[in-house]
Simulated assay, not measured.
Amino acid sequence: MVVVILNLGAPLDYHLIFGAGLFTAVYIISRFFGKYFGARIGSFYTKAPTTVTKYLSFTLLPHSGVSLVFTGIAVSVLTGLAPECAQFIQGTIAAAAVINEIIAVMIAKKGFEWAGELNANLISS
């Protein structure tokens, strides 16, 4: 998996990240709403505790390496067929992953705090 992530980031033209700004924002916002409402609806229908219903969605926001792996696969397939789309997808997902790993991790921590799942010793560190 590390090799695939390195292969995704190594040839990345960092201008693509800035060029995909609007699409990156749309992707991040759409992903947030999907996680937020999906977790709320799912936990409501499964009769999960109130803290799960209210805060689970915030803990799901950080990007995982899996999305980068799938992006790497999509880029490798599209490189021969539509290289401009491959670069576009690569820039959008890479930018979203960087942004989500910075901001979403802090939001996830807050979600755990709001749910009362972190003890006082962990919160202060």
Rank of each mutant, 00 (worst) to 15 (best):
I103L: 15
R40T: 05
F58L: 15
M106E: 03
L122I: 10
L8T: 02
S124V: 15
T51D: 08
V105D: 01
S64I: 03
F112C: 01
G116S: 09
E101G: 12
S30C: 12
I123T: 11
A74M: 15
G38Y: 09
V75E: 02
L61F: 04
T46W: 01
A96N: 06
A86Q: 03
G65T: 11
V2G: 07
F44T: 15
T24P: 04
A74T: 13
V4M: 14
I99L: 15
Y55W: 14
P83W: 13
N7M: 10
N7Q: 09
T79D: 13
C85Y: 15
L8A: 06
E101C: 08
E117T: 08
I123N: 08
N121S: 14
F33G: 07
G111N: 06
V4H: 10
A94V: 06
F58V: 00
A10C: 06
A82D: 15
V69P: 00
A48P: 04
I103N: 07
L12H: 05
I107W: 01
Q90N: 11
I99M: 11
Q87V: 00
A20E: 01
E117H: 10
F33R: 04
R31T: 02
Y55H: 15
G65Y: 06
A120K: 11
L56G: 00
Y45L: 10
L81W: 06
F44Y: 14
V105K: 04
T51H: 10
I123C: 09
Y27D: 06
F112Y: 10
I89A: 13
G65W: 06
I17R: 03
R40F: 08
S76N: 14
P83I: 11
L6K: 12
T59I: 13
F88S: 12
A39S: 05
A20K: 00
T92S: 02
F70R: 08
A120Q: 09
I5F: 07
I29E: 01
F33P: 00
V3K: 11
A120V: 08
